[in-house]
Computed example of a mutant assay.
Amino acid sequence: MVTLAVCAEMVFRDRPIQERVRRIHDAGFQAEIWDWTRHDLDALARTPADFSSMTGYISGTLTDEDGAAELLRTAEESVKAAEHLSCPRLNLHGTGLDGRGLPVVPVTGEPDGPMRATAHRTLTRIAELGESAGVVFTLENLNTAVDHPGVPFARAADTLALVEAVDRPGLRMNLDLYHAQIGEGNLIELVRRAHGLGLIGEIQIADVPGRCEPGTGEINYPAVARVLADLGYDGTVAMEAWASGDDDLALDRFRAAFTL
């Protein structure tokens, strides 16, 4: 069976973050957070919540040497924060994102050869950091059409290729099916390929359009759940989605979509 988690940044938003993760825990899910620097880690650690994932850097980028050095530096800080919450996974993107989800260092067009070489070197060092600390860094695919224009290495195909090239247990893919549906589609074959390579660290979901819970859009998540069961996937599926209405109902719909 998969483990189900819920992003605390996107549900129960009228409540403090500590109460959000408590509500998520009480509903039977693990909890996820984004930028840990915005939260009181001591207060979060006092909750009964099990933390599944958190952002694994504060700033930096994969595309140039200075940005890579900053990403590595802040990844080391993030490892310490993850230890405080006993959080096993730390999430990365191709570059830092601002408050609107836009890249701090945007890239026009496809990343070139030197950018890819820098990304490969940086992710190898990130993987080594994860292995020495006993955590896994995950590289998330994003969509550039709606939410994150200008992010480098955003497509699932690019993210998967980088993780495959690094080929270290300290780096896996955060396969976000919401972003993949907007950017590429063909979700079931994408899941099969990533799972066949053994490179999925986590799967995140939301429906399209709207980025709300399963059942509010076009993605057939019960079909995805059946494929995951057939493949023997026993990792984490996390709902990184806004509640379309009632937050508790959104969590119930998520659970129902992945309960066979």
Rank of each mutant, 00 (worst) to 15 (best):
M54T: 05
G56E: 01
G56S: 02
Y57F: 15
I58V: 12
I58H: 08
I58P: 00
S59C: 04
L62G: 12
E65M: 05
D66W: 02
D66F: 01
D66R: 13
G67L: 02
A68E: 03
A68R: 01
A69T: 09
L71M: 14
L72E: 09
L72V: 07
T74W: 00
T74S: 10
E76G: 04
S78M: 02
K80C: 05
A82N: 02
E83C: 04
H84D: 04
H84A: 15
H84T: 15
L85A: 05
S86C: 13
P88I: 10
P88C: 11
L90E: 01
L90K: 00
N91C: 12
N91W: 00
N91A: 05
L92T: 00
L92V: 03
L92M: 02
H93G: 02
H93D: 05
H93I: 02
H93E: 03
G94E: 10
G94Y: 03
G94N: 09
T95K: 08
T95A: 15
G96W: 01
L97E: 08
L97Y: 04
L97C: 05
D98K: 01
D98C: 07
G99A: 12
G101H: 06
G101L: 05
G101M: 06
G101W: 08
L102Q: 04
P103M: 10
V104L: 06
P106W: 07
T108S: 15
T108I: 12
G109L: 10
P111N: 12
G113E: 09
M115G: 07
M115T: 05
R116M: 09
A117G: 02
T118Q: 13
A119W: 11
R121D: 11
R121M: 11
R121I: 08
T122N: 08
A127M: 09
E128R: 10
E128W: 09
E128T: 12
L129E: 03
G130A: 10
G130P: 04
E131T: 09
E131C: 07
A133C: 12
G134W: 11
V135C: 11
V136T: 15
F137D: 03
F137C: 09
F137Y: 11
T138K: 04
T138H: 04
L139A: 15
E140Y: 04
N141D: 14
L142I: 07
N143T: 07
N143R: 10
N143E: 11
T144K: 06
T144W: 03
A145P: 01
A145C: 11
A145M: 06
A145S: 13
D147P: 05
H148V: 03
G150C: 11
G150W: 08
P152I: 12
P152E: 14
F153P: 06
F153S: 13
F153A: 12
R155G: 14
A156T: 15
A157F: 00
D158S: 15
D158A: 14
D158N: 07
T159S: 14
L160W: 06
L160K: 10
A161S: 13
L162H: 06
L162A: 08
